[in-house]
Amino acid sequence: MVDAGGGACGVSASALKLQVGARTLASFPRRLVRVAWSLEQVLAASGPVLPALADADDGYLVTSLPEGVALDAGGLRFVRQRYVRYYVDLAGGRAAWAAGLSGQARSGLKRKAKKLAAANGGVLDVRRYRSAEEMAVFHPLARRVSATTYQERLLGSGLPEDAAGLVAAAAQDWARAWLLFLGDAPIAYLWCGADGDTLRYDYVGHDPAYHALSPGSVLMGEALGDLFADCFRWFDFTEGEGQHKRGLASGGVVCHDLLLLRPTIANRAAVAAVGGFDAAMAVAKRWGETPALKGIAQRVRRA
């Protein structure tokens, strides 16, 4: 749902976790109201209003809160992660965007596209999908790719199995999608939903069997090239960081995800446990970077 302040909100189950890499050692489940800042709100440093909590709610999870912006809310505060919210300024034009990339990023895009085209008989086969009818064709092909990806297998964030939401968004002209083919087989997909003048980086993945051909990077470069002739003002890489985001973005805002919890004894204990554990892991990580301990740390993470 969207509250009066324009931010996306919703109630979801979440957890404070004691985590080493991808391994969760313990967790503290919580019922949280998620309040997500849109890219436009992040850029304006003016975000959504916090909705009232129901009796069963433990608090809020506020995502993409810009650094330096204060929320007028009481309770326990716990920062879950810090990152740069990267974006591309589409209104500036393709030439300005390309000129703003590093020489390494520009040459890398060209080299990877050339390599993949050579593997496909000299042709880079990228197919575009926009209408509801086209999205119905896109979905089963993209699902074949999504089923192979770490996003789906490890993170549970693959392309939805039900096409209804994707097709409905396309029917309102609120979606864009792309597939990259090698021969007759799709090997990478990208699906983006619209939020006003912003197009979001929602679902993405590539078949790991073709990782050496950099299909995800090639498809992302082609998609951005298309969008400079489209109707959107911004392309939003959303929360979290990654080398591909840094390399292709034209700007970014330092943000953090913030938990605002009711000051109960259980919540205080959970925050203290997770905060202490994270601090200990940060120290262990620094120690683990020393040559004498690096091999031991790697064996522990793989265990």
Rank of each mutant, 00 (worst) to 15 (best):
A70G: 01
S27M: 02
R94V: 06
V79C: 14
L61E: 13
R94D: 02
R34M: 09
R30A: 02
Q81T: 12
R85L: 15
G75P: 13
G93L: 03
G10K: 07
V84T: 15
S27K: 10
A54C: 11
V88K: 06
G93R: 11
A8K: 10
A44V: 08
E40M: 07
A26Q: 03
V35W: 09
L76G: 00
S27W: 00
R85Y: 07
R77H: 14
L50V: 01
V79E: 15
S12H: 11
L61R: 02
S14N: 11
R80C: 13
L76C: 01
A54I: 00
G47P: 07
G59C: 08
G92Y: 12
F78G: 02
G21H: 09
V20T: 03
R82M: 03
R85A: 13
G74R: 00
A56Q: 07
P51R: 01
D55A: 15
A13F: 05
D57H: 14
L90E: 08
V62I: 14
Y83T: 01
V42M: 10
L71T: 05
L16M: 15
V69L: 15
A56L: 06
G59R: 04
V79N: 05
P29W: 04
A8W: 15
V62T: 07
G21A: 03
Y87Q: 00
P48L: 08
R82A: 13
S46C: 10
F28H: 11
S64W: 01
G75T: 13
A96W: 08
L50C: 00
V62P: 02
P51E: 05
L71I: 10
D55V: 09
R80E: 15
A96E: 13
A44W: 07
D89H: 09
Y83N: 06
A15Y: 03
L18M: 12
V33M: 14
R85P: 05
W37F: 14
L61V: 05
G7S: 15
G21N: 08
L32A: 01
R34F: 12
D58C: 12
T24E: 06
G7P: 00
V69W: 09
S14T: 09
T63K: 02
Y86G: 04
G93D: 09
Q81A: 15
A54P: 00
F78D: 06
E40D: 15
L76H: 05
L18D: 05
S12A: 14
A52R: 12
K17N: 11
R34I: 10
L25A: 12
F28N: 02
E40I: 03
Y83Q: 06
